[in-house]
Design a binder for these strands. Sequence first.
DNA 1: AGAATAAACGGAGGCGCCTCCGTTTATTAT
DNA 2: ATAATAAACGGAGGCGCCTCCGTTTATTCT
Lengths: 204, 204
Amino acid sequence: MASRPLSELKDDTPPGAKTLRADARRNRDKLIEAAAQAFANHGTAASLEEIARRAGVGVGTLYRHFPTREHLVEVVYRHEVEVLCNAAEELSHEHAPDQALEEWMHRFVGYIATKRGMADSLRILLNSNSELFADSYGMVPIALKGLIERAVADGSIRADVDSTDVLHALSGTYSMPNSPEWHDRSRRLVRLLMDGLRWGAPKA
Amino acid sequence: MASRPLSELKDDTPPGAKTLRADARRNRDKLIEAAAQAFANHGTAASLEEIARRAGVGVGTLYRHFPTREHLVEVVYRHEVEVLCNAAEELSHEHAPDQALEEWMHRFVGYIATKRGMADSLRILLNSNSELFADSYGMVPIALKGLIERAVADGSIRADVDSTDVLHALSGTYSMPNSPEWHDRSRRLVRLLMDGLRWGAPKA
DNA sequence: AGAATAAACGGAGGCGCCTCCGTTTATTAT
DNA sequence: ATAATAAACGGAGGCGCCTCCGTTTATTCT
């Protein structure tokens, strides 16, 4: 898991939250990680007792941090968006611009996959918390924009696309049926898109 | 409860349902009645075990008849619409046409009141079962139409209104806030409407 | 009427939800 | 370093959900 770099890069505690005691913060993080896995595997109906168990804490602790299932879902959701967006910068350091972009797109569709199980809960959440969507989805195009600009500047992809074009192309994975081949199809979609982006680039 | 006349007037078993054994039918009816009360008092989150208890049957019986909470909600809902609509004919036999109409309108707003607690569940149901709304709400205007026509023919209300007008006028009770005075307000609304209907009628 | 049988009953049991509160532990003050 | 205290922990307990299956009962057949 690449979650340590995240907590170093950015303090997850927004204004308005007093600093938690060290053990509290530790347990909170463990809960979020366990919940992310559980939601990915079993949907948002996953057992909260099981999540607490896997995180190695009592249910009381879970409920103190997250009074309702929806709270937990929301925090996990926000957290994953952040991880995804922070990964953009990391990947830029570690890979060539076009490879960073491709890898990030692969992660993006993987992220979409986990969100499909959360669809119902998210829809309910979004009704009562309209800033959630704005906050989270605002970050995604920005992260993607950085990757694309670097790859364009580098000459490894064509210059006539922007982040919106690419997001639009990737968004097809939202509505793909949840079949066994889903994962393969998504990967092919990304490669296809990437080839299209490389076509006619200065470096090619 | 005026539910005996209903089961005599109309067999509640639509085509496609084999006749139930006598005890089964009895328990089913008891469950529906208990559920109607429970939903009215505690909303559709009412305990199903409690409903079974009040009906004097085991939970197993409840679940056999109604595999999910939503099934039970739907059946209760349909049943209450039927009771309401059948009451129109009964009232016509027992009262003068305008009094029958007034009494029916009072029952209608009372019925609306119980439905407000079911709002969430009903919205979910209506998404997956579009015929429910059509079936049920189709009956209401028909029942009302009969009452109005009789009162018009009798000369006790004016002739330039139809069932749609009246339903429209009553529908304001849907969106009234759930305050303590709700009931009083609703009764006044009905009387007001009734006075309007009598104004200029031949008999006045 | 009495036996055979198919249908219905109902509650125990396993699991999850959530709360409450006695115990443990990080932090602060001396 | 130690004591005091505020914060966090965690699991037992009470309740609800739902299933499974041994027992009861209405109905059918002779």
